[in-house]
Design a protein around this nucleic acid. Structure first.
Length: 570
RNA sequence: GCUCCCGUAGCUCAGGGGAUAGAGCAGCGGAUUUCUAAUCCGUUGGUCGGAAGUUCGAAUCUUCCCGGGAGCGCCA
């Protein structure tokens, strides 16, 4: 089971084109823009007619004449300037739903070429709380990784922690002079943040402290055992908190090679860049110039400061070097915000200059805005801590359940609140085009109406409710017969799952999958209103049960690819 | 100054060469002895920021302009 309607139609259209003496590879078929015209459409006649200087409608007629739809569809209709419109046969759709219902992959074909992909995402900073700024990277990166894996690619997820850098001088100084042990035990990351801020404030007025903090940093970098041990504690305590959040979100990483991991390689890397003529010394710093790239002509990439220190770009290049040696990947995906576009342009250009041909992708995304349309912040102007945000999501979902189903057992309420609340936050991210700055709204993401996680989860729950009432699970899915418009509309949607999932990776767009799932849930709800299932009899009842079960499986699989769980009841 | 991203219904957003531009919310009008109405059906609402261009065809591609956001050698 890997043939989608689109693939089947494309194959047949190509045969028709070949029979007309036209280039078969031009026979692309796409889902119809408007279902009034049919289920699928081909624009090939218009394109080819222009090239051949022929009348498009005549050419369309000729193609239609040669088109053999078999039991898949009848002769295509010709409309407008030369559209070919295809309508799937209900019998064929019914049979395909039967096959789909037994397919573990829900009709999603595996990628033709199995790629090795490293996905670099989340990357929070040690000694600082994770905040909303990390949420998009984390959720997007996880969803893209899941989808790539499902399509058969070999994926390595790597959390490139911010565990090295100038901030540690301040934290180390604070740790030694201002540490509140009790506070550290209560909330380690909060205490680290306090230390950083406090030292940062004192530094402004006390040059001696500024100097001392710098010295702590230098000692750390030189491998001083005491500072190294404190640093390790900072990392461990921070990671423990991050892991709690990742656990809650159901996200795991194959690797967590932070910036510190690459530090030992930086000096040699810069020397190599100089020796190879990739970089040059300018104003005391080591830079890579891109004089041949107009957009970067006046924007060199610094890899070593005039004081000998290394930079963000240096670490990123060392990271590429390491990943190349260890994994020889086909692609590396960086899921980080749009403001870093210039940085990645530079790093990618430098990597090519170093001779690496790996496909490097910066998967950029926009910002999250508050209700005031400005960058989302707390009232005091700080970043919103991620943990508090996730807790609130669960609390709000809990309140909804409490209102709707107060009699539900405590254990189940808790579970559902988590699944619905966290699902809502994730889905709100993923249903949005990644480049848009979007406005964070609790009421919208938790609404049962519209393109939201609860709406989709509810569709799943409705199906499960039917099977609970039925008392048994489904037997063999044979002799499916779908005739009602609402049945067929839903069935055709389900068959498109295998068409949609692969497109997500073309431009890294999980929102395409989200849109599809929303349309599917919508089609299901409409079917649910129009077609009784348990009250139906004979073949209709059986067919509808299969349709329901397949809907549930597609919704569950689709949401799982987005990292969203489904409850059995809500 | 240079570069990148965004501008679509009152609001939040889809659609990124194809037909009469869609959805949710809000508004208006309906459907409930329920397989969970936590839903569904109907309806009002748009010079797709503006102007040129490419094309049989442009919200979509190109250029310029306007408006908003961001980034641009020694932070990450």
């Amino acid at each position: 089971m890997s043939t989608t309607p689109q693939a089947a139609l494309t194959q047949r259209l190509r045969a028709a084109l070949a029979a007309c003496g036209l280039p078969p590879e031009r026979g692309d078929v796409v889902a119809a823009a408007d279902t009034r015209f049919g289920d699928y459409q081909a624009n090939a006649a218009m394109v080819l007619a222009k090239e051949a200087k022929r009348n498009p409608r005549e050419l369309a007629a000729q193609i239609a004449e040669q088109f053999d739809g078999g039991d898949l569809c009848a002769k295509p209709e010709i409309a407008g300037p030369g559209f070919l419109n295809f309508r799937l046969e209900p019998g064929w759709v019914s049979r395909r739903v039967g096959i789909l219902s037994a397919d573990a992959r829900c009709g999603v074909p595996e990628a033709e070429e199995r790629l090795k992909i490293i996905v670099d995402f989340s990357s929070p900073n040690i000694a600082k709380p994770m905040h909303v700024g990390h949420i998009r990277s984390t959720i997007l990166g996880d969803a893209l990784s899941r989808i790539a894996r499902f399509l058969g690619h070999e994926v390595v997820t790597d959390n490139h922690l911010g565990d090295w850098g100038t901030q540690f001088g301040k934290v180390l100084y604070g740790w030694k002079h201002l540490l509140d042990r009790a506070a550290l035990e209560r909330d380690p990351v909060a205490e680290m943040t306090r230390l950083y801020r406090e030292v940062n404030a004192i530094e402004q007025t006390d040059p001696a402290v500024h100097k001392a903090a710098r010295e702590e940093l230098v000692k750390l970098q030189q491998g001083d055992p005491e500072n190294r041990a404190i640093w390790q504690q900072l990392v461990d305590l921070s990671w423990a908190e991050f892991e709690e959040i990742y656990g809650q979100l159901g996200i795991r990483f194959d690797e967590r090679l932070g910036e510190s991991f690459y530090d030992p390689a930086l000096a040699a890397l810069v020397e190599k860049l100089l020796a190879d003529g990739v970089a040059e010394i300018s104003e005391g710093a080591v830079c890579v110039f891109f004089r041949d790239v107009p957009a970067l002509a006046d924007k060199p990439c610094l890899v070593r400061k005039s004081d000998g220190g290394f930079l963000y770009a240096t670490t990123d290049l060392a990271t590429i070097e390491y990943r190349e040696e260890r994994w020889e990947p086909d692609a590396i995906w960086y899921v980080t915000g749009a403001p870093q576009q210039l940085h990645f342009q530079q790093v990618f250009s430098a990597a090519r200059r170093m001779g690496y041909g790996t496909k490097l992708e910066h998967i950029a995304f926009g910002s999250i805005l508050g209700e005031d349309h400005k960058l989302m912040k707390t009232r005091s102007g700080d970043n919103v801590p991620l943990r508090a945000l996730l807790d609130e999501a669960v609390t709000r979902a809990r309140a909804m359940i409490e209102e709707k189903n107060p009699e539900m057992p405590e254990e189940e309420k808790k579970h559902i609140a988590r699944v619905v609340g966290l699902g809502a936050v994730k889905y709100a991210e993923l249903s949005q085009h990644r480049m848009t700055d979007y406005v964070f709204s609790w009421s919208k993401m938790l609404s049962l109406q519209g393109n939201t996680a609860p709406y989709l989860q509810n569709a799943y729950v409705r199906v499960r409710s039917i099977f609970r009432k039925l008392g048994t699970e489904l037997g063999a899915a044979e002799n499916i017969s779908l005739t009602e418009p609402a049945e067929l509309a839903l069935a055709k949607k389900l068959l498109q799952f295998g068409e949609v999932v692969p497109t997500v990776l073309h431009e890294f767009r999980p929102n395409l999958l989200a849109n599809y799932l929303f349309e599917t849930a919508n089609a299901f709800h409409a079917f649910y209103e129009a077609c009784p299932v348990l009250k139906a009899e004979g073949p209709a009842r059986h067919s509808r049960l299969v349709l329901c079960d397949t809907t549930a499986r597609v919704l569950r699989q689709g949401l799982e690819l987005l990292g969203v769980e489904v409850p059995e009841r809500m």
